[in-house]
């Protein structure tokens, strides 16, 4: 057992062996999910609450499906619509939740660090489904699994992460995970979308796709949020697509067998050309969705094991 944590709040605290353990188990769940009977009961009797303070369809559905396939009782709470509008604080929400005795809490929140804060205040296991611009650990794990299955390994690869790095929690978690697994990471994007001091993390930073994509094994595209498109961070959508959108012309600078990834949902014709996204020889975007369910099953399975192994939790501090 390498992954012994109570929560999965980010990739940062994980050791490489723990990452490998999660991915190994996820491989088994991929097999289960592809079989005729997609059900296990490792989470039977446990209650999983998905608490999304920010809109999400795909991640929430993925967590819901993962929980249900493992036999948990799953409940979805759309928080942006309810109590925060009434002025309830995150801590009040945590105390309310404690009273419902959930075992696993899946949380997405628009503010960095909010999931950490919640984890300090609740009794149960907490999974970070994305907090602000901080981390999105299960996305990085599913990306890692996708790469490992496509490339046969998750080390010593040249991996380019392209686009809006500054506002992306997906990029942060991936930079940390891929770094821990000893890959060479290149970040490509306009300087307005590059976070300050990021080169100090051991990444190579490029402003030009043609240079940055040279001989990479993996091209990871990021979603450009609509609100960043008009004048503030980039001059226009079409200029962005011209300089940073992934099309076949730019992709030819990468290795011939390079794979193309995207965390979704995609803006076709903004950060990625539709044809590339649909090219079954290059794009692994559909696999990423499939791996998402398996990785979340593995993470919840391991966390539930840790929950059972842990001594009874003590007092809650408010």
């Amino acid at each position: 057992m390498s992954f012994t944590d109570k929560h999965l709040l980010g990739i940062e605290p994980l050791r490489p062996e723990a990452i490998t353990e999660i991915l190994d188990l996820a491989d088994k769940y991929v097999a289960l999910n592809r079989g005729p009977l997609k059900h296990s009961d490792v989470l039977a009797g446990l209650t999983q609450i998905n608490m999304f303070f920010e809109n999400s369809t795909r991640t929430q559905a993925s967590f819901e499906l993962a929980g249900k396939r493992l036999g948990a009782d799953v409940m979805n709470m759309a928080m942006q619509a309810s109590s925060i509008k009434k002025g309830e604080t995150l801590i009040d929400t945590a105390l309310t939740l404690n009273a419902m005795h959930p075992d696993i809490l899946v949380v997405r929140h628009p503010h960095s660090g909010a999931v950490d804060l919640l984890a300090q205040k609740v009794n149960c296991t907490v999974l970070n489904a994305g907090d602000g611009q901080h981390e999105h650990p299960t996305q990085a794990l599913l990306d890692g699994l996708t790469i490992r299955r496509a490339k046969g390994r998750l080390h010593r690869l040249n991996i380019a992460i392209c686009g809006d790095i500054a506002h992306s929690r997906v990029a942060r978690s991936n930079i940390i995970l891929l770094g821990k697994m000893e890959n060479r990471i290149r970040l490509i994007g306009p300087p307005t979308l590059m976070p300050a001091g990021i080169a100090e993390l051991g990444c190579e930073v490029y402003q030009d796709m043609h240079v940055g994509l040279q001989d990479v094994d993996v091209v990871m595209m990021l979603r450009l949020q609509k609100e960043r498109m008009d004048g503030g961070f980039i001059p226009s959508e079409r200029e962005y697509y011209h300089r940073y959108g992934l099309d076949s012309e730019k992709l030819q600078y990468a290795k011939d067998d390079a794979i193309v990834m995207h965390p979704g949902p995609m803006n076709r014709g903004v950060e990625i050309d539709g044809e590339i996204a649909d090219d079954i020889n290059r794009s692994v975007i559909q696999e990423q969705v499939e791996m998402g369910v398996a990785v979340r099953m593995a993470a919840m399975d391991l966390l539930a094991r840790n929950l059972r192994d842990a001594p009874a939790s003590g007092e809650v501090t408010a």
Binding site: E12, G113, R169, A196, G197, I198
Partner: peptide, 15 residues
């Protein structure tokens, strides 16, 4: 304050 730490924590930062 903008820099490596704020970037890692994903916090809005000022130069």
């Amino acid at each position: 304050t903008s820099g490596k730490f704020a970037s890692l924590r994903g916090l809005p930062a000022v130069s």
